[in-house]
Design a protein around this nucleic acid. Structure first.
Length: 115
DNA sequence: CGATTGACGTACG
DNA sequence: TCGTACGCCAATC
């Protein structure tokens, strides 16, 4: 089985995957959506991230960016600078709200979690 | 209850 | 190659 409980809500699955992202690595909304089976529902992944505040467990939303590696959702954090700051703490180079070397840092749940 | 929006991505011109 | 349109589905107005 891929995840502990894939019967749960779409949002829960998103959070699950987000927490599985290794330190210093990042992924995209589309990748998560695709992994969950709805490749075109990437918007829902973003929507789920908007609700991370409602979750009990902390979700490293800063490791989730769009497929361009841009920190599009940084503005939704407590502080816009927090997202970049957290990434830099993990060794990710962020420049102009964009992740450098994104291709190498990209963490694909479909590949890493195996399907 | 209908219309609009949204932390995205792909398709098409 | 760049710009625009549409899909996706839930939440908010």
């Amino acid at each position: 089985m891929k995840l502990s409980e894939r019967n749960k809500d779409f949002f829960q699955q998103v959070y699950q995957v987000a927490r599985l992202i290794p330190k210093g690595r990042v992924t995209s909304y589309g990748a998560i959506a695709k992994y969950l089976g709805s490749g075109k529902s990437s918007r829902m992944v973003g929507w789920a991230m908007n609700a991370v505040g409602s979750q009990k467990e902390y979700v490293p939303a800063h490791r989730v960016v769009n497929r361009l590696g841009m920190l599009t959702g940084k503005h939704h954090f407590s502080d816009p600078n927090q997202m970049q700051n957290l990434l830099e703490q993990e060794g990710v180079v962020v420049k102009n709200d964009k992740i450098q070397n994104f291709k190498e840092l990209f963490w694909d749940p479909m590949l890493e979690l195996e399907l």
